[in-house]
């Protein structure tokens, strides 16, 4: 009895320490963002609320020149939204269509095409940085949302995810639908898409987060501030800070990290159930 009490105590101690380890950086970042730059400069990181919340965040969010030369954090957040939604919607649509063709049709090029999709796993962006940039530049897609989103949505993960799910749908459903006279398109729209609702939600949430957090590709693709996402903005402010000059505006950097973190974290926490499901399924 005593021993199990001890075990329970250790469990909670370890978990609380883990929670602090995970949470402290963000806590400190948020608290520090509510202080004046002078305070930060003089006293270092801050652990409690500093009263400059509105000042810092209004300037970052709404004032031109507050963080970047021209764009505001609001604009960057919007760009991130576009990237997050564009990426997740595009990915769900494209991979559902492809997975449907692969699982439910017998056609001659099925195997080779499946292997082409599989190959994308072997070719992450990181191994083809320069030529990918050249292709997009050649198509005149630098600094466009098309160039930003489209090349990202074709990788195999989503297709594999839906392929796996479609294969788990009982065969009799298709057979019943065929006896009921459903054409391929009808079956897809009337039966398969509604059946996939939770799967779509799960993968959508994962992909939104993945899209929002894209870094390398936007870094290569966007050279004008107009198209910066909030995550790219962070890189820029880092450069400004390290170049020095006047009193560094650390509170803005902190504010930016909070702004970049908040939306995807909220999505993950609010839709935790679907998120975990999507993560466990999609990584398989």
């Amino acid at each position: 009895m005593n021993q199990s009490l001890l075990r329970t105590l250790t469990n909670h101690t370890i978990l609380i320490l883990g929670t602090i380890f995970m949470g402290l950086p963000v806590w400190v970042a948020f608290m520090s963002s509510t202080h004046a730059p002078e305070t930060l400069f003089r006293e270092g990181l801050q652990f409690w609320y500093g009263g400059h919340f509105f000042e810092t965040y209004t300037e970052v969010l709404f004032v031109e020149g507050g963080v970047m030369k021209k764009v505001t954090a609001t604009k960057m957040l919007l760009n991130s939204m576009v990237l997050g939604f564009g990426f997740s919607i595009g990915k769900v649509v494209i991979s559902m269509l492809a997975a449907y063709a692969i699982v439910y049709f017998r056609f001659r090029l099925a195997m080779p095409l499946f292997w082409i999709i599989f190959m994308t796993l072997l070719l992450p962006l990181e191994v083809r940085i320069v030529p990918s940039y050249e292709v997009v530049a050649g198509l005149g897609l630098l600094n466009t949302f098309t160039g930003l989103i489209v090349p990202l949505i074709a990788s195999a993960t989503g297709t594999f995810f839906f392929r796996q799910f479609f294969k788990s749908v009982p065969e009799e459903i298709l057979e019943a639908a065929r006896l009921d006279g459903a054409s391929p398109l009808r079956f897809f729209i009337d039966i398969l898409v509604p059946l996939s609702k939770t799967m779509i939600a799960a993968i959508f949430i994962i992909m939104f987060v993945v899209g929002w957090n894209q870094y390398l590709w936007p870094l290569l693709m966007t050279t004008s501030e107009e198209h910066y996402t909030i995550v790219i903005g962070i890189k820029q402010i880092y450069q400004v800070l390290s170049e020095g000059g006047e009193l560094p505006q650390f509170q803005k950097a902190f504010a930016l990290t909070i702004l970049a973190t908040l939306p995807p974290v909220l999505v993950v926490v609010i839709f935790q159930h679907w998120f975990v499901k999507g993560l466990l399924e999609s990584e398989k």
Binding site: I173, E175, A176, A177, L179, P194, L195
Partner: peptide
């Protein structure tokens, strides 16, 4: 002849009901 045209109906082992449709819609779909 395609299955929907040869005028047979089938009851499946696991019923194969469309899980997202009401009973009415299940019966009316064909």
């Amino acid at each position: 002849v395609s299955p929907s045209e040869c005028d047979v109906a089938m009851v499946f082992q696991n019923y194969a009901l469309y899980p997202h449709m009401t009973v009415y819609r299940n019966m009316a779909y064909g």
